[in-house]
């Protein structure tokens, strides 16, 4: 039972991080039907920015929750800028090209960002000091749930709620849904397509940056390559949940996190990825659109 509890907690933590990244994939896909492979790199840039911001701000004497929050704000702004720029440079000029062109451009962008960070920052693992302050009521159970895990869950839940609110209840959210349904029709009714797409990239990047900050605090080290595997897993989660669907991405991420965790715990960590991907294949055979994906009827 104790093992089950621990594995559940670890699965939930992994799933939360995957969810933060997977949302960026699924939102972008929903709106312009593009798989943004550079998204994992934005998460990595979020982690690096947090590292630098944490160093500078703690030098300036900040500490505690204020520090965590300000580091988060810096990381979000900086990564959102990256997301925005990547869209303008790599995808906007190709918006009307064949579907393969932006895909290749996305992979190129991903390789570029990885190497760029490797060159200007460091090819080595860097130490990331955990800046999550101690939480009093968690102290007695810190060997079961540590403070960072707790912060990861709470933050993820809050951000999901905020995102749902933005999409369901704001004008921009409505415009996003409109663009997702029919881009040309939305344009005819006066929706500013470019702004909607930019906003989507900015939102997705912001979430990934928070993921980068939290995983930095959790693992306590970062390097330029962390975006690759995390990005792949998050992309898988998005597909698992039904790419294009926001609750689907969260569900897919949790399913992936739990299945990896339980597979590692009950079978063997040799088979962690095998089990996760077998699950993906089975789900896609049974439900080709993913867990919460809508069956797509092709417009003629």
């Amino acid at each position: 039972m104790e093992l089950f509890r621990d594995l559940f907690i670890s699965g939930l933590t992994k799933g939360s991080i995957y969810a933060l990244i997977a949302l960026g994939y699924t939102m972008v896909y929903g709106i312009i039907a593009l798989i943004n492979f550079a998204h994992g790199e934005i998460y990595m840039i979020g982690a690096f920015t947090s590292l630098i911001a944490a160093m500078v701000l703690s030098q300036l004497g900040m500490a505690g929750w204020g520090l965590l929050l300000s580091v988060g704000v810096v990381a979000v702004l900086y990564s959102a800028m990256y997301g925005w720029t990547v869209e303008k440079i790599a995808y906007k000029p190709l918006r009307d090209a064949s579907r393969l062109a932006p895909l290749i451009s996305a992979i190129g962008m991903s390789i570029f960002l990885q190497n760029y960070v490797q060159l200007v920052q460091s090819p080595n693992f860097l130490i990331f000091n955990n800046i999550v302050p101690d939480i009093g009521f968690l102290e007695p159970v810190s060997h079961i749930v540590n403070k960072t895990q707790f912060v990861i869950w709470v933050t993820t839940a809050l951000l999901m709620a905020a995102l749902t609110f933005i999409i369901k209840c704001t004008r921009m959210g409505m415009a996003m849904r409109a663009v997702a349904q029919d881009r040309d029709m939305a344009r005819l009714t006066g929706v500013n397509i470019d702004r909607v797409i930019s906003t989507t990239f900015v939102l997705g990047s912001a979430l990934a940056a928070v993921g980068g900050l939290l995983i930095g605090c959790y693992m306590q080290q970062v390097d330029f390559y962390i975006g690759f595997l995390a990005g792949m897993k998050a992309f898988t989660a998005a597909v698992l949940g039904g790419i294009g669907s926001i609750p689907g991405a969260v569900l897919g991420a949790l399913v992936l996190g739990f299945s990896e965790s339980f597979a590692a715990g009950y079978i063997s960590s040799d088979y962690e990825d095998v089990v996760a991907f077998v699950l993906l294949i089975v789900i896609l055979i049974v439900r080709p659109g993913g867990l919460m994906g809508e069956s797509q009827t092709q417009k003629v």
Binding site: L7, I215, G265, S268, S269, D270, E272
Partner: peptide, 20 residues
């Protein structure tokens, strides 16, 4: 006796297993 995937997001699961 297991191999772990390097570069994972977290090693929690294998740590829990080690503990139990």
């Amino acid at each position: 006796f297991e191999g772990v995937t390097t570069g994972q997001v977290s090693y929690d699961a294998v740590v829990s297993k080690l503990k139990s």
